[in-house]
Amino acid sequence: MQQDIVFSTFLIFAGASVLATFALYTRQPVLIAYIALGALVGPFGMGWIEHPEQLENMSHIGIIFLLFLLGLDMQPSSLISVLRQASTVGLVSSLLFFIAGFAVTWVFGYSQMDSIIIGLALMFSSTIIGLKLLPTTVLHHKHMGELMVGLLLLQDMLAIFTLILLGVMKGESDMPVWQPFLALPLLIGVAYLTVKGILLPLITRFDRYQEYLFILAIGWCLALAEGAQLVGLTYEIGAFIAGITLATSPIAQFIAISLKPLRDFFLVMFFFALGAGLNLGMLSSVAFSAIALAIVVLTLKPVAFRILLRRFSERTSLAWDVGFRLGQISEFSLLIGFVAVESGLLTERGSLLIQATAIITFVVSSYIVVFNYPNPIAVSDKLRRD
Protein backbone atom coordinates (compact mmCIF):
# COMPACT_ATOMS: atom_id res chain seq x y z
CA MET A 1 0.00 0.00 0.00
CA GLN A 2 1.30 3.45 -0.93
CA GLN A 3 2.34 5.47 2.08
CA ASP A 4 0.30 8.67 2.59
CA ILE A 5 2.82 11.41 3.30
CA VAL A 6 0.19 13.67 4.90
CA PHE A 7 -0.96 10.91 7.27
CA SER A 8 2.66 10.01 8.06
CA THR A 9 3.54 13.64 8.84
CA PHE A 10 0.42 13.98 10.99
CA LEU A 11 1.28 10.79 12.87
CA ILE A 12 4.86 11.88 13.49
CA PHE A 13 4.14 15.36 14.79
CA ALA A 14 0.88 14.65 16.61
CA GLY A 15 2.45 11.62 18.27
CA ALA A 16 5.68 13.51 18.96
CA SER A 17 3.77 16.31 20.66
CA VAL A 18 2.05 13.81 22.98
CA LEU A 19 5.19 11.85 23.86
CA ALA A 20 7.31 15.03 24.12
CA THR A 21 4.78 16.44 26.59
CA PHE A 22 5.04 13.27 28.65
CA ALA A 23 8.85 13.42 28.41
CA LEU A 24 8.94 17.00 29.68
CA TYR A 25 6.59 16.24 32.57
CA THR A 26 8.80 13.31 33.57
CA ARG A 27 11.99 15.35 32.96
CA GLN A 28 13.28 13.22 30.08
CA PRO A 29 15.11 14.38 26.92
CA VAL A 30 12.61 14.97 24.09
CA LEU A 31 14.90 13.19 21.60
CA ILE A 32 14.00 9.95 23.37
CA ALA A 33 10.31 10.61 22.72
CA TYR A 34 10.88 10.89 18.97
CA ILE A 35 12.87 7.63 18.83
CA ALA A 36 10.30 5.82 21.00
CA LEU A 37 7.45 7.03 18.77
CA GLY A 38 9.21 5.62 15.70
CA ALA A 39 9.64 2.23 17.35
CA LEU A 40 5.99 2.27 18.50
CA VAL A 41 4.24 3.08 15.18
CA GLY A 42 6.89 1.88 12.72
CA PRO A 43 6.84 -1.36 10.69
CA PHE A 44 8.21 -3.44 13.59
CA GLY A 45 5.74 -1.94 16.08
CA MET A 46 2.10 -1.19 15.26
CA GLY A 47 2.91 -0.94 11.56
CA TRP A 48 1.06 2.36 11.00
CA ILE A 49 4.05 3.60 8.98
CA GLU A 50 5.34 0.84 6.74
CA HIS A 51 8.19 2.56 4.89
CA PRO A 52 10.23 4.75 7.25
CA GLU A 53 13.11 4.84 4.77
CA GLN A 54 11.11 7.34 2.70
CA LEU A 55 10.88 9.67 5.70
CA GLU A 56 14.55 9.07 6.48
CA ASN A 57 15.52 10.41 3.06
CA MET A 58 13.51 13.58 3.74
CA SER A 59 14.86 13.92 7.26
CA HIS A 60 18.40 14.04 5.89
CA ILE A 61 17.67 17.64 4.89
CA GLY A 62 17.62 18.51 8.59
CA ILE A 63 21.24 17.35 8.94
CA ILE A 64 22.17 19.48 5.93
CA PHE A 65 20.57 22.58 7.46
CA LEU A 66 22.20 21.82 10.81
CA LEU A 67 25.67 21.92 9.27
CA PHE A 68 24.80 25.00 7.20
CA LEU A 69 23.72 26.92 10.30
CA LEU A 70 26.82 25.78 12.13
CA GLY A 71 29.01 27.15 9.35
CA LEU A 72 27.20 30.49 9.56
CA ASP A 73 28.23 30.74 13.22
CA MET A 74 31.93 30.10 12.64
CA GLN A 75 34.67 32.33 11.26
CA PRO A 76 37.06 30.67 8.74
CA SER A 77 40.19 31.72 10.65
CA SER A 78 38.97 29.99 13.81
CA LEU A 79 38.21 26.79 11.91
CA ILE A 80 41.66 26.59 10.34
CA SER A 81 43.42 26.89 13.69
CA VAL A 82 41.26 24.28 15.42
CA LEU A 83 41.57 21.75 12.56
CA ARG A 84 45.32 21.48 13.24
CA GLN A 85 44.61 20.23 16.74
CA ALA A 86 41.56 18.15 15.77
CA SER A 87 43.47 16.19 13.11
CA THR A 88 45.77 14.42 15.57
CA VAL A 89 43.07 13.85 18.19
CA GLY A 90 40.60 12.63 15.55
CA LEU A 91 42.96 10.19 13.86
CA VAL A 92 44.32 8.65 17.06
CA SER A 93 40.89 8.32 18.66
CA SER A 94 39.38 6.78 15.52
CA LEU A 95 42.09 4.11 15.42
CA LEU A 96 41.49 3.35 19.10
CA PHE A 97 37.72 3.06 18.62
CA PHE A 98 38.18 0.76 15.61
CA ILE A 99 40.42 -1.61 17.58
CA ALA A 100 37.98 -1.68 20.51
CA GLY A 101 34.98 -2.30 18.26
CA PHE A 102 36.72 -5.07 16.37
CA ALA A 103 37.91 -6.78 19.57
CA VAL A 104 34.53 -6.72 21.33
CA THR A 105 32.65 -7.96 18.27
CA TRP A 106 35.20 -10.72 17.66
CA VAL A 107 34.87 -11.90 21.27
CA PHE A 108 31.09 -12.27 20.80
CA GLY A 109 31.64 -14.68 17.92
CA TYR A 110 31.00 -12.48 14.90
CA SER A 111 32.94 -13.20 11.72
CA GLN A 112 36.15 -11.37 10.92
CA MET A 113 34.49 -9.28 8.19
CA ASP A 114 31.55 -8.37 10.47
CA SER A 115 34.03 -7.37 13.17
CA ILE A 116 35.98 -5.16 10.75
CA ILE A 117 32.85 -3.38 9.49
CA ILE A 118 31.50 -2.86 13.00
CA GLY A 119 34.90 -1.60 14.14
CA LEU A 120 34.84 0.92 11.29
CA ALA A 121 31.31 1.99 12.26
CA LEU A 122 32.39 2.69 15.83
CA MET A 123 35.04 5.22 14.79
CA PHE A 124 32.54 8.04 14.35
CA SER A 125 30.44 10.21 16.67
CA SER A 126 27.03 11.62 15.87
CA THR A 127 26.99 15.03 14.22
CA ILE A 128 23.30 15.38 15.03
CA ILE A 129 23.47 14.47 18.74
CA GLY A 130 26.67 16.44 19.27
CA LEU A 131 25.44 19.62 17.62
CA LYS A 132 21.74 19.37 18.47
CA LEU A 133 22.68 19.42 22.17
CA LEU A 134 25.21 22.23 21.69
CA PRO A 135 23.76 25.64 22.70
CA THR A 136 23.73 27.85 19.62
CA THR A 137 24.10 31.25 21.23
CA VAL A 138 26.45 30.18 24.01
CA LEU A 139 28.93 27.67 22.61
CA HIS A 140 29.09 28.01 18.82
CA HIS A 141 31.27 31.09 19.21
CA LYS A 142 33.52 29.49 21.82
CA HIS A 143 36.55 27.27 21.49
CA MET A 144 34.70 24.12 22.55
CA GLY A 145 32.17 24.47 19.76
CA GLU A 146 34.92 25.05 17.21
CA LEU A 147 36.83 22.03 18.52
CA MET A 148 33.79 19.77 18.22
CA VAL A 149 33.15 20.96 14.68
CA GLY A 150 36.77 20.27 13.75
CA LEU A 151 36.59 16.73 15.12
CA LEU A 152 33.26 15.99 13.44
CA LEU A 153 34.41 17.32 10.07
CA LEU A 154 37.53 15.17 10.25
CA GLN A 155 35.36 12.16 11.07
CA ASP A 156 33.17 13.02 8.06
CA MET A 157 36.24 12.80 5.81
CA LEU A 158 37.19 9.45 7.39
CA ALA A 159 33.62 8.23 6.85
CA ILE A 160 33.83 9.14 3.16
CA PHE A 161 37.12 7.26 2.89
CA THR A 162 35.51 4.26 4.64
CA LEU A 163 32.55 4.20 2.24
CA ILE A 164 34.94 4.34 -0.73
CA LEU A 165 36.98 1.53 0.84
CA LEU A 166 33.86 -0.64 1.16
CA GLY A 167 33.18 -0.11 -2.53
CA VAL A 168 36.77 -1.07 -3.39
CA MET A 169 36.53 -4.22 -1.24
CA LYS A 170 33.43 -5.27 -3.19
CA GLY A 171 34.88 -4.11 -6.51
CA GLU A 172 32.01 -1.64 -7.09
CA SER A 173 33.70 1.73 -6.57
CA ASP A 174 34.69 3.77 -9.62
CA MET A 175 35.99 6.63 -7.46
CA PRO A 176 39.72 6.90 -6.73
CA VAL A 177 40.53 6.98 -3.02
CA TRP A 178 42.28 10.33 -3.41
CA GLN A 179 39.37 12.08 -5.16
CA PRO A 180 37.56 13.49 -2.07
CA PHE A 181 40.79 14.95 -0.68
CA LEU A 182 41.45 16.76 -3.96
CA ALA A 183 37.80 17.80 -4.36
CA LEU A 184 37.61 19.44 -0.91
CA PRO A 185 39.99 22.39 -1.51
CA LEU A 186 38.60 22.86 -5.02
CA LEU A 187 35.05 23.05 -3.67
CA ILE A 188 36.11 25.55 -1.00
CA GLY A 189 37.78 27.73 -3.64
CA VAL A 190 34.75 27.68 -5.95
CA ALA A 191 32.42 28.46 -3.03
CA TYR A 192 34.55 31.40 -1.88
CA LEU A 193 34.71 32.95 -5.36
CA THR A 194 30.97 32.44 -5.90
CA VAL A 195 30.08 34.15 -2.63
CA LYS A 196 32.48 37.02 -3.23
CA GLY A 197 31.63 37.56 -6.89
CA ILE A 198 27.90 36.74 -7.04
CA LEU A 199 26.12 36.24 -3.72
CA LEU A 200 27.45 39.21 -1.73
CA PRO A 201 26.63 41.72 -4.51
CA LEU A 202 23.12 40.25 -4.73
CA ILE A 203 22.72 40.42 -0.94
CA THR A 204 23.89 44.04 -0.87
CA ARG A 205 21.49 45.06 -3.64
CA PHE A 206 18.37 43.24 -2.43
CA ASP A 207 18.89 43.22 1.35
CA ARG A 208 15.43 44.77 1.91
CA TYR A 209 13.65 41.67 0.58
CA GLN A 210 13.75 39.14 3.39
CA GLU A 211 11.88 36.47 1.47
CA TYR A 212 14.46 36.67 -1.32
CA LEU A 213 17.35 36.39 1.15
CA PHE A 214 15.71 33.35 2.73
CA ILE A 215 15.30 31.61 -0.64
CA LEU A 216 18.82 32.60 -1.72
CA ALA A 217 20.31 31.09 1.44
CA ILE A 218 18.43 27.79 1.06
CA GLY A 219 19.32 27.58 -2.61
CA TRP A 220 23.01 28.20 -1.87
CA CYS A 221 23.05 25.61 0.93
CA LEU A 222 21.43 22.86 -1.14
CA ALA A 223 23.39 23.71 -4.30
CA LEU A 224 26.73 23.32 -2.55
CA ALA A 225 25.52 20.21 -0.71
CA GLU A 226 24.58 18.62 -4.04
CA GLY A 227 27.87 19.76 -5.59
CA ALA A 228 29.84 18.17 -2.77
CA GLN A 229 27.99 14.88 -3.27
CA LEU A 230 28.73 14.90 -6.99
CA VAL A 231 32.50 15.28 -6.47
CA GLY A 232 32.74 12.48 -3.90
CA LEU A 233 32.21 14.35 -0.63
CA THR A 234 29.01 14.43 1.46
CA TYR A 235 25.99 16.68 1.58
CA GLU A 236 26.98 17.68 5.13
CA ILE A 237 30.45 18.88 4.14
CA GLY A 238 29.00 20.88 1.24
CA ALA A 239 26.41 22.50 3.50
CA PHE A 240 29.04 23.41 6.08
CA ILE A 241 31.23 25.02 3.41
CA ALA A 242 28.17 26.92 2.15
CA GLY A 243 27.58 28.25 5.65
CA ILE A 244 31.14 29.19 6.50
CA THR A 245 31.63 31.08 3.22
CA LEU A 246 28.59 33.20 4.14
CA ALA A 247 29.62 33.64 7.78
CA THR A 248 31.12 37.09 7.20
CA SER A 249 28.11 38.39 5.25
CA PRO A 250 25.75 40.95 6.85
CA ILE A 251 22.78 38.54 6.70
CA ALA A 252 24.45 35.57 8.44
CA GLN A 253 22.50 35.98 11.69
CA PHE A 254 19.21 36.64 9.88
CA ILE A 255 19.61 33.39 7.94
CA ALA A 256 20.53 31.46 11.09
CA ILE A 257 17.40 32.63 12.92
CA SER A 258 15.13 32.05 9.92
CA LEU A 259 16.26 28.47 9.24
CA LYS A 260 16.21 27.08 12.79
CA PRO A 261 12.50 26.04 12.75
CA LEU A 262 12.96 24.37 9.36
CA ARG A 263 16.00 22.50 10.67
CA ASP A 264 14.10 21.28 13.74
CA PHE A 265 11.18 20.07 11.60
CA PHE A 266 13.40 17.69 9.65
CA LEU A 267 15.43 16.60 12.69
CA VAL A 268 12.25 15.36 14.40
CA MET A 269 11.67 13.20 11.33
CA PHE A 270 15.25 11.90 11.51
CA PHE A 271 14.93 10.63 15.07
CA PHE A 272 11.51 9.16 14.31
CA ALA A 273 12.91 7.27 11.30
CA LEU A 274 15.78 6.01 13.46
CA GLY A 275 13.37 4.41 15.94
CA ALA A 276 11.11 3.09 13.18
CA GLY A 277 13.99 1.30 11.48
CA LEU A 278 14.83 -0.88 14.48
CA ASN A 279 13.76 -4.51 13.97
CA LEU A 280 12.34 -5.31 17.40
CA GLY A 281 11.74 -8.96 16.50
CA MET A 282 15.45 -9.69 15.94
CA LEU A 283 16.65 -7.55 18.83
CA SER A 284 17.05 -10.46 21.23
CA SER A 285 19.69 -12.06 18.96
CA VAL A 286 22.06 -9.12 19.44
CA ALA A 287 20.94 -7.82 22.83
CA PHE A 288 23.96 -8.87 24.91
CA SER A 289 26.55 -7.92 22.31
CA ALA A 290 24.82 -4.56 21.68
CA ILE A 291 24.79 -3.74 25.39
CA ALA A 292 28.46 -4.71 25.73
CA LEU A 293 29.43 -2.70 22.66
CA ALA A 294 27.41 0.31 23.88
CA ILE A 295 29.12 0.18 27.30
CA VAL A 296 32.52 0.20 25.58
CA VAL A 297 31.52 3.19 23.43
CA LEU A 298 29.96 5.16 26.29
CA THR A 299 32.99 4.70 28.54
CA LEU A 300 35.89 4.62 26.09
CA LYS A 301 34.99 7.65 23.97
CA PRO A 302 34.76 10.22 26.81
CA VAL A 303 37.93 8.87 28.43
CA ALA A 304 39.85 8.79 25.15
CA PHE A 305 38.87 12.33 24.17
CA ARG A 306 39.63 13.55 27.69
CA ILE A 307 43.17 12.08 27.64
CA LEU A 308 43.95 13.18 24.09
CA LEU A 309 42.61 16.72 24.50
CA ARG A 310 44.46 17.17 27.80
CA ARG A 311 47.71 16.40 25.96
CA PHE A 312 47.00 19.51 23.88
CA SER A 313 46.66 21.66 27.02
CA GLU A 314 42.87 21.79 26.96
CA ARG A 315 41.17 22.29 30.32
CA THR A 316 40.05 19.09 32.04
CA SER A 317 36.44 20.30 32.25
CA LEU A 318 36.39 21.13 28.52
CA ALA A 319 37.97 17.78 27.61
CA TRP A 320 35.31 15.87 29.58
CA ASP A 321 32.56 18.06 28.10
CA VAL A 322 33.65 17.34 24.52
CA GLY A 323 34.17 13.65 25.32
CA PHE A 324 30.66 13.12 26.69
CA ARG A 325 29.05 15.12 23.88
CA LEU A 326 30.82 12.85 21.36
CA GLY A 327 30.31 9.68 23.41
CA GLN A 328 28.10 7.78 20.96
CA ILE A 329 28.33 6.31 17.48
CA SER A 330 27.12 8.13 14.39
CA GLU A 331 24.43 8.30 11.75
CA PHE A 332 27.39 7.58 9.45
CA SER A 333 27.74 4.27 11.30
CA LEU A 334 24.21 3.37 10.21
CA LEU A 335 25.04 4.35 6.62
CA ILE A 336 28.19 2.22 6.66
CA GLY A 337 26.16 -0.73 7.94
CA PHE A 338 23.55 -0.25 5.21
CA VAL A 339 26.15 0.00 2.42
CA ALA A 340 28.04 -3.02 3.74
CA VAL A 341 24.86 -5.14 3.85
CA GLU A 342 23.92 -4.09 0.32
CA SER A 343 27.43 -5.06 -0.83
CA GLY A 344 27.27 -8.45 0.89
CA LEU A 345 30.15 -7.58 3.25
CA LEU A 346 28.05 -7.48 6.44
CA THR A 347 25.43 -9.91 7.70
CA GLU A 348 21.92 -8.79 8.72
CA ARG A 349 22.82 -9.67 12.31
CA GLY A 350 25.89 -7.43 12.14
CA SER A 351 23.80 -4.59 10.71
CA LEU A 352 21.23 -4.96 13.49
CA LEU A 353 24.06 -4.85 16.04
CA ILE A 354 25.15 -1.46 14.64
CA GLN A 355 21.56 -0.17 14.74
CA ALA A 356 20.97 -1.34 18.31
CA THR A 357 24.29 0.06 19.51
CA ALA A 358 23.52 3.38 17.81
CA ILE A 359 20.15 3.75 19.53
CA ILE A 360 21.50 2.72 22.95
CA THR A 361 24.41 5.16 22.72
CA PHE A 362 22.19 7.92 21.32
CA VAL A 363 19.79 7.55 24.22
CA VAL A 364 22.32 7.19 27.04
CA SER A 365 24.69 9.90 25.81
CA SER A 366 21.70 12.26 25.40
CA TYR A 367 20.74 11.60 29.02
CA ILE A 368 24.30 12.30 30.17
CA VAL A 369 24.48 15.62 28.33
CA VAL A 370 20.94 16.76 29.11
CA PHE A 371 21.37 16.20 32.85
CA ASN A 372 24.95 17.42 33.23
CA TYR A 373 25.93 20.01 30.58
CA PRO A 374 24.40 23.18 29.07
CA ASN A 375 22.05 22.32 26.20
CA PRO A 376 18.87 23.60 24.53
CA ILE A 377 16.57 20.82 25.85
CA ALA A 378 17.85 20.52 29.43
CA VAL A 379 15.22 19.65 32.02
CA SER A 380 16.93 22.00 34.48
CA ASP A 381 16.62 25.78 34.09
CA LYS A 382 20.22 26.06 35.27
CA LEU A 383 21.53 24.06 32.30
CA ARG A 384 19.10 25.18 29.59
CA ARG A 385 20.83 27.27 26.93
CA ASP A 386 19.39 28.00 23.49
Rank of each mutant, 00 (worst) to 15 (best):
Q2H: 14
Q3R: 08
Q3C: 04
L11G: 03
L11E: 00
I12Y: 08
A20W: 04
A20P: 00
F22E: 07
R27W: 00
Q28N: 07
L37T: 02
F44Y: 15
G45K: 08
M46P: 02
P52V: 03
E56Q: 15
I61G: 01
I64R: 05
L70P: 07
G71P: 12
I80T: 12
R84F: 10
R84K: 15
L91C: 12
L91G: 10
F102D: 03
A103E: 08
Q112C: 11
I116C: 11
I118M: 11
G119P: 07
M123A: 13
S126M: 05
G130A: 14
G130I: 02
K132W: 03
P135T: 00
P135F: 01
T137Q: 11
M144A: 12
E146A: 12
L147A: 12
M157K: 06
T162F: 02
I164E: 06
L166I: 08
G167A: 03
P176Q: 01
V177W: 06
V177Y: 09
L182I: 07
L187T: 10
L187H: 00
I188T: 10
V195R: 15
Y209L: 13
L213H: 02
F214W: 11
I215Y: 14
A217N: 01
W220I: 05
L230P: 04
L233R: 03
Y235P: 00
L246S: 10
P250M: 05
P250T: 01
A256L: 04
R263S: 07
F266D: 09
V268C: 07
F272M: 02
A276Y: 03
N279D: 14
A287Q: 09
A292M: 08
A292N: 05
L293Y: 09
V296E: 03
L298W: 10
P302L: 06
A304Q: 10
R310N: 13
F312Y: 15
F312H: 15
R315K: 15
D321P: 00
E331Q: 13
F332Y: 13
S333V: 09
V339Y: 08
A340P: 11
G344C: 09
L346G: 07
T347K: 10
T347Q: 11
I359D: 07
Y367R: 02
V369W: 01
P374H: 12
R385Q: 15
D386K: 13
